[in-house]
Computed example of a mutant assay.
Amino acid sequence: MAPIASTTDLHKSGLSRREILRHCTPAGPWQQLLPGVVLQKPSPPTRLDRLRAVLFFAGPDSVITGADALSQQGASVPLPRHIHVLAGMNTRRSHPSILFERTTRPPEVVERNALRLAAPPRAALDLARRSTNPREVVAILDAVIDARLCSPTDLHQELDQSNRRGTALVRRALRHLYPLAPGQARLDHIRIGS
């Protein structure tokens, strides 16, 4: 039995709503992590449990981005209290522990540990553009490059394709840290457009 399940799936498997509620009482063997999402073990949830629960809650098209996506793929970045999730424009969900970002440009998805994660360039820029601290932005970009999750060119390409909102500091840091060679920007633009 999977440790994370939706109450809908549990009900379909034959458990009554009353049985599910009884299992989720303080003395029961399960716990409700989010509305409609149950952790089927009594021990405190791990970060991985929380990430899986968030994807159940956010829906089948949701993708984890930012610090958690980078950490799951091998970058050393601090994890915030909230979990950053990309969702479609029609998503109407909300929760205090989840940072929902509605997007019209779904990311490339990397599957790891039964999670849907944004590819490193997108996850790094989603995290960096929310920072107002230049040193923090530099640390994020360096962490992704140091972990060899992507190249500076990958970051430049992602930045060129992304919404410009909140990217001024990231653009400045990327140009300073990892400038493109002369002519490289033009070649990358041709490659993206072809």
Rank of each mutant, 00 (worst) to 15 (best):
D142S: 09
L169R: 08
S162N: 01
L117N: 06
V110W: 10
R50Y: 12
D61M: 12
S62K: 11
P42R: 14
C24Q: 11
T132L: 10
F56I: 08
R18S: 09
S76F: 15
D9L: 13
H23T: 01
R50M: 13
Q157F: 03
G59R: 10
R105F: 04
H11Y: 14
R18C: 04
Q32C: 07
L159P: 00
R92E: 14
A114M: 09
L39M: 12
E108K: 15
R18H: 10
R135K: 14
H23A: 15
L187C: 06
I4D: 00
T132R: 15
V37L: 00
L48E: 07
L155Q: 01
P107Y: 15
D154F: 10
T25D: 07
Q31R: 15
H95F: 08
V110M: 05
L86A: 07
P179A: 01
L21W: 06
H11M: 12
A181M: 09
L51D: 01
L169K: 03
A139L: 09
L10N: 03
P121F: 09
N163V: 05
N90T: 15
V137H: 02
A69N: 04
A123F: 13
A75P: 07
A128K: 04
D68R: 09
R18V: 14
P29C: 08
I145K: 08
Q40Y: 01
M1C: 06
A124I: 11
T46Q: 05
S13Q: 14
V144E: 04
D126A: 07
L10K: 03
S16H: 11
I192N: 02
Y178W: 06
R18W: 04
A143K: 03
L174T: 00
R171E: 13
A58S: 08
L149H: 04
I83W: 02
